[in-house]
Simulated assay, not measured.
Amino acid sequence: MERAEMKILLVDDNLSLLDQIRQILTSQRYIVETVSNGEEALDKLCENPFDLIILDIMMPKMDGFTVLREMRQIKIDAPVLMLTAKGDSTDKVKGLDLGADDYLSKPFSMDELLARVRALLRRSAGQCQSVLEFGELALDTVNRKVTMGGKPVELTPREFSILEFLLHNKDRVVTRFSLAEHVWGDDFDPFSMSNFMDVHMKNLRHKIGDTGNARIIRTVRGVGYIIGDTE
């Protein structure tokens, strides 16, 4: 978990969602300030430093794109996680071009939101490692290579994404839904593709030699998967 004094500015005009996200973030010991329009957001950013900004796009008075453009122009370089309309790739591309660091499509799971928040805070604090490791397993996020005991492991892009997401969340249980949302996005249908995920997981385990009692990827029955310790 990141330091308790990590400060997050949450900006969204959906007051119900705003309160829901605030409660989730504060339960993880983040300090959270909330505003419901772009003008207030820019005022807050000029008054106080934040470690992360979660920024909706469609808002009254000033939209998220304008807030992002203005804050980057005045050299506020805190990471920005943009909340976009479901499946709207145009918004995603525009946000990234303006200086956003990541995006999340509505509706989203809170597990996925927390994973993105943790990743951005680690990156901004200089703690993001290019190589993720667990025992003899190593995943290079830059060169997109996996080794087991120093020997290369050939994975499909989907298998690589599954393993990368689990390693980024090492020692935390990842739900099947948040894993599916991360790897397949809006294309995943939980009703028709559940077995599809099981096949990918089985193939991944086979390729990394994940057999026997001391498994690398452990199944948490009824919830999801974990690499590491559940304690």
Rank of each mutant, 00 (worst) to 15 (best):
P60Y: 10
Q28L: 13
D13C: 09
E33Q: 11
L42N: 01
I31F: 12
Q73S: 14
K61E: 14
V80P: 02
S16V: 15
D63A: 06
D77W: 05
S27T: 13
K44I: 00
D43R: 11
A41T: 10
L83R: 00
K61L: 13
P79K: 00
R22W: 14
Q20H: 11
N37G: 01
D19F: 14
D56Y: 02
F50G: 00
I53R: 02
D51Y: 07
T66S: 08
T66R: 07
M59R: 04
E70V: 00
D51W: 06
D43L: 11
T66F: 03
E40F: 01
G38A: 05
F65N: 03
D19Y: 13
P60W: 09
K75A: 10
N14K: 14
V67P: 02
T34C: 15
S89R: 12
D43C: 08
I21F: 13
E70S: 09
D12P: 03
I53H: 01
L55V: 06
M71N: 01
E70K: 10
D13F: 07
I24C: 12
T66A: 08
I24E: 15
F50T: 02
T26R: 15
F50I: 02
E39N: 09
P49G: 01
N37I: 04
L25R: 07
G64P: 03
K75G: 07
E47M: 10
K44L: 08
L17T: 14
I53G: 00
N48Q: 15
E47S: 11
K86W: 06
D88I: 05
P49E: 02
V32R: 05
M59P: 00
R22H: 14
L45N: 08
S27E: 15
I24F: 13
I54D: 02
N48W: 07
K75F: 06
T34A: 13
L68R: 04
L25C: 11
D88R: 09
D43A: 15
I57S: 05
A85V: 10
Q20K: 13
L68Y: 04
M82N: 04
L83M: 08
Q73W: 04
A41K: 00
M82R: 04
L52W: 09
L18G: 07
I21Q: 12
I21N: 10
L52A: 12
R69G: 01
L17K: 15
M59C: 06
L25Y: 08
T66Y: 00
D77E: 09
M59G: 00
K86I: 04
Q28F: 14
D77T: 11
N48M: 13
D77K: 12
K75M: 08
E39L: 10
I57N: 01
L42Q: 03
D63L: 03
L42C: 05
I74S: 12
D13E: 09
M59V: 06
D77P: 05
D19H: 13
V67C: 08
G87W: 02
D12F: 00
E47Q: 14
L15R: 15
M82G: 05
D12A: 09
M62D: 07
S27G: 14
